[in-house]
């Protein structure tokens, strides 16, 4: 079933056209990878989908579960199951990870008319999910991302993903800067969370992560446009040719 449908999306940032007619359809159960050179608009697309303010939608539409996504505030999108793992997670001094997740999970559960967790249940769920990303539970009492290493921040994103169990998860360069162990942890997290009812959009600069998370589709983004789509083989070709080649010649013929 179609989960997300992006049609001819054109977006300006500070009067520059950054997304220039994106078309993309994601169905339940699928994993899509979006690859592209720096500055091609990957993070912009992710932020627009997650509901960040400051973008001017020039043209096009985004449908999510039959709703006009672009009209919903960011928190409602999250409550409806959209999740963005940030390329640069934000530090929030004074708010503990535990408090952050408890607030988020309970807000989402309230929205969905589910009972909120009590403190004990909640702690158990958190401990279990922390294990999934191999984080020591002591991090739960630390301030959100404050003083975390790059790898810890990325693992924390996956921890939050596991806590919130979204329907559509967008991972923005979660693999960048990770060593091989952290990469494996992130990939395991994603693989254990995927099922036939949810979908993932994995934004990455490198093919590396796609050895662990096997995508159904790979799209190449350049200058705000998807210039080519294919299966996982396309990622390997991209790696081989390099982004400079793409920038000069456009699509790869095989």
């Amino acid at each position: 079933m179609s989960l997300l449908k992006i049609e001819n999306l054109k977006v300006k940032v500070e009067n520059n056209l950054i997304l220039n007619g994106i078309n993309l359809e994601v169905n339940e159960g699928e994993i899509h990878a979006i690859m592209g050179p720096n500055g091609s608009g990957k993070s912009t697309l992710a932020s627009v989908l997650a509901g960040k303010e400051g973008y001017e939608i020039v043209e096009g539409s985004v449908w999510y579960k039959g709703m006009n996504l672009l009209e919903l505030p960011a928190d409602i999108r999250a409550k409806e199951g959209i999740f963005l793992a940030f390329q640069y997670p934000v530090e929030i001094p004074g708010v503990t990870n535990a408090n952050f997740m408890k607030t988020a999970v309970n807000e989402i559960r309230k929205y969905r008319n589910l009972e909120t967790y009590d403190a004990m249940e909640f702690l158990n769920v958190m401990k279990e999910k922390a294990k999934l990303v191999e984080m020591d539970t002591s991090f739960l009492n630390r301030s959100v991302n404050e003083g975390f290493s790059g790898g810890e921040k990325k693992k924390n994103e996956i921890f939050q993903l596991a806590m919130l169990e979204p329907t559509l998860a967008i991972l923005d360069e979660t693999d960048s800067g990770l060593d091989i162990d952290a990469l494996r942890i992130v990939a395991n997290g994603v693989n254990s969370l995927r099922n036939e009812h949810n979908a993932f959009i994995i934004i990455t600069h490198y093919q590396r992560l796609l050895n662990y998370i096997i995508p159904d589709f790979v799209h190449v983004l350049n200058k705000g446009k998807i210039i080519q789509s294919g299966d996982k083989e396309l990622a390997l070709h991209l790696e081989e040719y390099g982004y400079d080649w793409i920038k000069q010649n456009g699509i790869i013929n095989n």
Binding site: A50, G51, K52, E53, P73, A74, D75, R77, A78, K79, F83, L84, F86, P89, V90, I92, V95, N99, F100, M101, T103, A104, V105, E107, I108, Y111, Q160, L164
Partner: peptide, 18 residues
């Protein structure tokens, strides 16, 4: 920071509170 909290399902009012 507000956007980060909102992207986790926390409404604007609660995010500012927090």
């Amino acid at each position: 920071a507000i956007f980060y909290l909102k992207s986790r399902g926390i409404d604007e009012f609660t995010a500012k509170n927090l």
